[in-house]
Design a protein around this nucleic acid. Sequence first.
RNA 1: CGGGACGUAGCGCAGUCUGGUAGCGCAUCACACUGGGGGUGUGGGGGUCGUAGGUUCGAAUCCUAUCGUCCCGACCA
Length: 514
Amino acid sequence: MSQIRHALTVKREDDFAKWYQEVISAADMAEESGVRGCMVIKPWGYGIWERIQRLLDDRIKAAGVQNTYFPIFIPLANFEREADHVEGFAKEMAVVTHHRLIADGEGGLIPDPEAKLEEPLVVRPTSETIIGDAMARWVQSWRDLPLLLNQWGNVVRWEMRTRMFLRTSEFLWQEGHTAHATPGDAKSETERALEMYRACAEEDLALPVIAGEKPENERFPGAVETWSIEAMMQDGKALQAGTSHYLGTNFAEAAGIQYQDREGTQQFAHTTSWGVSTRMIGGVIMTHGDDDGLRVPPRIAPHQIVILPMLRDKPEDEAVLSYCEEVRASLASQSAMGEPVRVLLDKTPGKASAKRWDWVRKGAPIILEVGPRDMEGGKVAMLRRDALWNADSGKPNMQFIAREKFASQAASLLEDIQASLFAEAASRRDANITRGIKEWGEVEAFYQGGSKYPGWLEVQWSRPTGEALEKVVEQLKSLKLTFRNVPRDAGAADGACIFTGEPAVERILIARAY
RNA sequence: CGGGACGUAGCGCAGUCUGGUAGCGCAUCACACUGGGGGUGUGGGGGUCGUAGGUUCGAAUCCUAUCGUCCCGACCA
């Protein structure tokens, strides 16, 4: 019996946190920048983000939302208008106080005391306030509504503890901001955005998610309702992968977003905001990664098929290369999942067998290796990243296929890989949500039971608020647990609240979380 | 921000306690042999030891400060 020699040095089950970091460096996705909490996103990581951007941007535009760009610097006063918003963000703000540097006389530079800003600018942690200002100018009449805007950009939040992709001080995201005439319209938009995120996560990133409403204590500062999609990582922890907020008139009142209705009366608009970020990439890693590195779902893979020619510094190399080029061209002319197939002929120097492992770690969905004898036989040697190993031999499960046959199957193979990554994650997720817990004692037993990756619980509760809720949150915290959301499609409650014993009103998910 | 650990070649580490020519493995480069799959051999290249001060004849090693990273906690849209 052969021993499989994995491409990574750390296994998931040995040290999940260390494994996560190794995937990022081994797949060459990102690296530390030397600036606290900030990372350099390298081509493979950024390429994945560009794919997510492209696919999500299409969905955003299909909903009639238009892209805009607002400044990264926001006047401090904007933040002071909405009390909860201030409260929520004040502690993690980067603040610009000077506009010039001056020599300190010791060879260094310091902010010029003469160049102090009268009003400090904050680096945006989110753009509700500055977009709200614009909306107040742009909205006059009911005819101006709904106003549907989106922005792709970066934001900064001075986090205490950072982890690459999952929580960085600076991150890339998309933030939608909309204004509507009625609460109903705004809530519909909140739901639409949430559903858009669900579809993007599940169909594009192959991340099974649970869409639902956040409880009061998990709301966005200033929001009336916060909804999220929650994904389960391989260690059983939850990752909030996207949020959508119904803001009521809170921000409209703070910024003065008012319109005249058909009767000529001044009304406050109802606004929403919704966003997903580069955090999703962390979710892809922790959902689809394995002990050989990343596995990128084909829809978001910068290269779906990588062709590695086996070159030997001999005259016959040229023929192999042109054969590979023919294979590349025939694949690139095809479509898979509604887009041209993305194929890379990797001509970088080096042995194909060694380069293979780089692409395995990066997680290219299909790797083709082509040597002189493949060429003679009109074949290609194919590896599926999602089914890398032959369990019997302990070696990579290389399949030799006639090139025409592979070409005719390529699109459906990619679809198949996309589907199987989703199915694998979905069945793991489903197997790790436990229902039917009736008492708090069972919750304690469940999470103290020694299971390394205990997963989630769905429990019934009476939705306490205020102090009663705080008490429950503290109770959860003692087990490092948090509320995730009240799933949109969870069944109706039919029992007692596990916290208060009162009749339950809904079902809510409990988990450890990133 | 509190507690702990750490920073030495691209990656992983030893050396630090007890100051005295900066090392090992992998990777990389050259050449040769290989050639249906992470090959072998021989020979090279690469580091002002995170940064800045200090102590000393001499500092990776001792002291101080600072920046960054990881783990635990607090915080977290």
